[in-house]
Nucleic acid binder design. Structure first.
Length: 678
RNA sequence: GCCUCCUUAGCUCAGUCGGUAGAGCGUCUCACUCGUAAUGAGAAGGUCACCAGUUCGAUUCUGGUAGGAGGCUCCA
């Protein structure tokens, strides 16, 4: 019976004969960075006994994406153990890994304080240093329920698993934001944390795993970053649990690099730079999410808009203007009041006439601030009969819209209540739509590149089965057309099921910025429904009346948001063509002020935004000020320069070029602006 | 909208265990006239977000409102 049976494993690509029951720990004993193994595409604990003949076994290093996930998941367990030491009443929610870290949700009487987080970090260090083992144990449903009797949320997850078919459950749990980490497909498992010395089980959690072999690997390259509330299973109808976020890395240097990355993102925060460079502000008097642009920010914005207008004109767009408010009927026809009433500012009720007794003699009317421009563009289309010869008709507007965003979501310029969309609607025939989408995508990407974004991928948002209008055939046709255009672009295409607006599917362009973050930028939506609702039509070449197709598209999304993205992308150091001040002239001493002014006058005559710093600051201080303002070109002139009819450059990176003849310097700056050099 | 935290000079922040406040930067004045990231001295500047309550007395304690931060939910 106990005869050792030999099996063949394909270990890291090579065949090996081993005794059945050999563990990953034994196989990879000399590879210290291996923390889990992959057996036939499935991640397993390192101490898994291997019994299947012919199985593929691959080592997973701690630094690999999967290894990092396991590290962070295990760190979440250690944190939960510490939390239950500090707060024995804490009930466990879920605790998955996320990008760069992990979190764990707890139901506790009192929320965690920053002091608690410090205490918990120390308690975690104790656990980490005591080198507990993570030990996996398969349990039956009854056994799991018995052991988790004091953990109501775990029982709820077990209940879900019991009730529904496996596949369904996994889908549901995945939807519930990481819950599948707790009770995955297949068998139920509990992980015991076993004390090294005593062998006692000090903590346990219902968990799918896998985990690190022991807590020591977590080392002390972890940190608890913040606490916040989160709805249980991601549903705002449920109770809010207290969530603690943390991060964990293979080494202290990795942790430091991560923290430096976070600090860099903070330094680039457009709200901070916007204040430092005097670009915009959010006066409390106006209300939340309603920005004003100061003169410097106004220049950046105007430069962005001017270039956009020029490009749109070149691309055959026509410019339209529409009002900010309208009677309610427009948004009844468009369907917005049905779908987005909560996201719109409440109506203004006007023109009601009552008699002396308060009876309504003449009913009033509701006016709404407009949340979208498209219905108004439809009205322009239908203002007279249209011929197929006019199509495609491309209407562009910097359209200001107002949305009643929930107070908790407003964020700088990226999520506001009043914004200006660079909105266009293209009305075309069905035959034209594919070509039109394809040229629009090229146009969009080209323009984004001109603003300095280079790295893109596409997302295809498809029908939300609970939130759409129109027939399935129309949705299929629209979706397929968008998919074909997206694929033809050669860019990576990520599906976004259910992400579409109610009136049609969309492609969105996601851009990566200078520090690798992605932002949703442009969107292109194909819409058969709005033209139908407005009963738009044109006369075709055969004399029949046809309905046009409508393409919604915005490049910036909103001018405000795009300015925020560019501010963070450039860390405030805008390319010269966008910079609020393009040139600051600094005379070495007052005696050279006039010489400097002559140069700056030449620049101004060439359309350059140039200033002379004639403040009483000393020379080095002026250099410092210009640096802090991130001015692209600093021009310096003293005796050496004026004698030679020259000027000296100081660039933003601190490098210099001296004794440049004045005309050359002017030409160079004019060229840099005209070519939108970075 | 929900949870936690925050709001003190133009900005960044100290501080007051309840007796109406400080620093640095910035601003202004004076002196300095200088070659690549901070010259020195002096001055002005605050209803301690707003509104109530408790108190002899509130910037401080309590409640509410507004605004902000980080999350959650949402994002046409």
């Amino acid at each position: 019976m106990a005869v050792p049976q030999h099996i063949t494993l394909i270990v890291d690509g090579e065949e090996h004969q081993v005794t059945a029951g050999t563990t990953g720990t034994e196989l990879f004993a000399d590879q210290r960075d291996v923390v889990v193994i992959r057996v036939n595409d499935e991640l397993k604990d390192l101490d898994t006994e291997l019994v299947e003949d012919g199985a593929r076994v691959d080592p997973v290093a701690i630094g690999s994406p999967e290894g990092l996930n396991v590290l962070r998941h295990s760190a979440a367990h250690v944190m939960a153990q510490a939390v239950q030491q500090l707060r024995p009443d804490a009930k466990l929610g879920i605790g998955p890994y996320v990008t760069d870290g992990f979190y764990f949700d707890f139901d506790v009487e009192d929320p965690f304080t920053p002091e608690d987080l410090k205490k918990l970090e120390k308690m975690m260090l104790k656990i980490v240093n005591s080198n507990q083992q993570f030990r996996r144990r398969v349990v039956t449903g009854d056994k799991a329920r018995a052991e988790m009797a004091d953990e109501p949320y775990k029982l709820e997850l077990l209940g879900l698993k019991g009730e529904s078919a496996e596949a369904e459950l996994d889908a549901e749990l995945d939807g519930a934001e990481g819950a599948s980490v707790e009770v995955g497909a297949g068998e139920l498992t509990i992980y015991d944390n076993v004390d090294r010395k005593s062998g006692d089980v000090v903590w346990e959690d219902l968990c799918r795993g896998p985990h690190l072999p022991n807590t020591k690997i977590i080392s002390n390259a972890y940190a608890l970053t913040r606490s916040a509330a989160a709805y249980w299973r991601g549903d705002e109808k449920n109770k809010q649990l207290q969530r603690i976020y943390g991060t964990a890395w293979p080494t202290k240097d990795d942790l430091k690099a991560y923290q430096e990355r976070i600090a860099e993102a903070e330094r680039r925060d457009h709200r901070r730079i916007g204040a430092e460079l005097d670009l915009f502000s959010f006066p409390e008097e106006l209300g939340s999410g309603l920005p004003v642009f100061h003169p410097k920010g106004g220049i950046v914005r105007k430069a962005m808009e001017d270039y956009s207008r020029q490009r749109h004109a070149d691309a055959g767009y026509e410019f339209v203007y529409t009002p900010h408010i309208t009677k309610s009927r427009l948004y009844e026809v468009s369907g917005h009041l049905d779908w987005y009433r909560d996201g719109m500012f409440p109506p203004m009720h006007v023109d009601e006439v009552t008699d002396d007794d308060g009876n309504v003699v003449k009913p009033g009317q509701d006016y709404y601030l407009k949340p979208m421009n498209c219905p108004m563009h439809c009205l322009i289309f239908e203002s007279r009969g249209r011929s197929y010869r006019e199509l495609p008709m491309r209407m562009f507007e910097f359209g200001s819209v107002y949305r009643y965003e929930k107070s908790g979501v407003i964020h700088g310029l990226t999520r506001v209540r009043g914004m200006t969309q660079d909105d266009a609607h293209i009305f075309c025939t069905r035959d034209q739509m594919k070509q039109e989408l394809s040229t629009t995508l090229d146009f969009v990407l080209g323009l984004l590149r001109d603003y300095g974004l280079e790295d893109f991928y596409l997302e295809l948002s498809t029908k939300n089965p609970d939130k759409y209008v129109g027939s399935d055939e129309i949705w299929d046709e629209a979706t397929n057309t968008l998919a074909e255009v997206a694929q033809a672009s050669g860019l990576e295409l990520v599906p976004d099921p259910g992400g579409a607006a109610f009136y049609g599917p969309k492609i969105s362009v996601q851009a990566r910025d200078a520090i690798g973050r992605t932002w949703q930028m442009s969107t292109m939506q194909l819409d058969f429904n709005t033209p139908a609702r407005f009963e738009l039509e044109y006369q075709s070449d055969d004399g029949s009346r046809q309905q046009p197709v409508m393409i919604h598209r915005a490049l910036f999304g909103s001018v405000e948001r795009f300015l925020a993205v560019l501010t963070e992308h450039y860390a405030g150091a805008f390319p010269a063509w966008l910079a609020p001040v393009q040139v600051v002239g600094i005379p070495v001493a007052e005696a050279f002020n006039d010489y400097m002014y002559d140069i700056v006058d030449k620049l101004r005559a060439a359309g350059i935004r140039a200033e002379v710093d004639i403040s009483t600051d000393r020379f080095p201080k002026k250099i410092r000020n210009a640096s802090k303002d991130k001015v692209p070109f600093v021009l310096i002139a003293g005796g050496e320069d004026s004698d030679a009819g020259a000027v000296s450059f100081r660039f933003r990176d601190g490098s210099q070029q001296n004794a440049v003849p004045v005309d050359d310097a002017v030409g160079r700056i004019v060229e840099a602006v005209a070519n939108r050099e970075r």
